[in-house]
């Protein structure tokens, strides 16, 4: 299903070839700005809240990788879902003989955003080289696990937000809030004042998708956080599934 969606997305994207160049260009700009931001900050200091430059580069790498994954499939599909609820076109999806949650979650793919995933991965590798002997197999494994958990949490969170569209009509903006919260993940959550740190951890769980995996990579992760991250991922997946079903029951089509 995801593959089909990808194939369709690829076909669509290729038809708009100019977009590929623009996307590449744009991702490079984004990368430049992120690194530029770090460069500007580190031109004035040598550590930010205890994080060194190469650790922050790894953080940007994860930020882009996860952000890319969201941008490739999760966000476009969620936007489509909310539009579907608003305009009533969700009807067509619901009548398909497959799990509706899966269908809406991979409904639209913006293939070019994969560029971001690739750039993010490259950045992580670069940072790992810079970190040198501090990276062990164990840490990489912990990194992979926490990142998977983080992505699952973010996906569930976005699905829950989008499902709100069943009750509240014009909600495209709700993804904007995630987007700006996500921007805050560019920096380690530890530097933020306590209320904001708590928000980024438990309300809009950006910390689990970005800061926690990087902590795992650089060896700052406490085992309790790892376990907590996994448990939270499972809880989020279950909660989002339940909420999605609740929302569906509330769906009445556009003209209701």
């Amino acid at each position: 299903m995801l593959w089909l969606s990808f194939r369709l997305g690829a076909l669509n994207a290729i038809q708009y070839r100019a977009d590929f160049m623009v996307q590449l260009f744009q991702s490079l700009i984004g990368l430049g700005i992120a690194l530029g931001g770090i460069a500007v900050v580190f031109s004035q200091t040598d550590q930010l809240g205890g994080w060194r430059q190469e650790e922050l580069i790894a953080l940007i790498g994860v930020f882009m990788l996860v952000g890319g994954l969201i941008a490739v499939v999760i966000r476009p599909s969620m936007e489509q879902l909310m539009e579907g609820v608003r305009l009533g076109t969700l009807d067509f999806t619901l009548t398909k003989p497959a799990d509706a949650q899966v269908l809406v979650s991979v409904k639209r793919v913006e293939i070019w955003r994969l560029v971001e995933v690739v750039l993010g991965a490259a950045l992580i590798v670069l940072a790992m080289v810079q970190l040198g002997e501090r990276v062990s197999l164990e840490r990489v494994a912990a990194f992979a696990v926490t990142m998977l958990a983080g992505v699952a949490i973010v996906y569930s969170f976005l699905l829950i937000l989008s499902t709100l569209a069943f009750w509240l009509v014009r909600l495209e903006n709700i993804l904007v809030i995630f987007h700006s919260m996500y921007e805050a993940g560019r920096w380690p959550v530890g530097i933020y004042p306590p209320w904001l740190r708590a928000t980024l951890t438990f309300v809009v769980p950006v910390a689990f998708a970005i800061t926690v995996p990087v902590e795992a990579l650089v060896g700052r992760l406490e085992p309790a956080t790892l376990v907590g991250s996994l448990l939270l991922a499972v809880a989020f997946l279950i909660a989002s599934r339940w909420f999605w079903r609740l929302g569906l029951r509330h769906y009445t089509g556009a003209s209701a």
Binding site: R7, A10, L11, I14, Q15, R17, F20
Partner: peptide, 18 residues
């Protein structure tokens, strides 16, 4: 209107010349 053929390969070709 742009001429389109089905399939990924044809689409890729159209990247070069439309």
């Amino acid at each position: 209107v742009p001429e389109r053929e089905g399939g990924l390969a044809a689409a890729a070709r159209s990247l070069v010349r439309r």
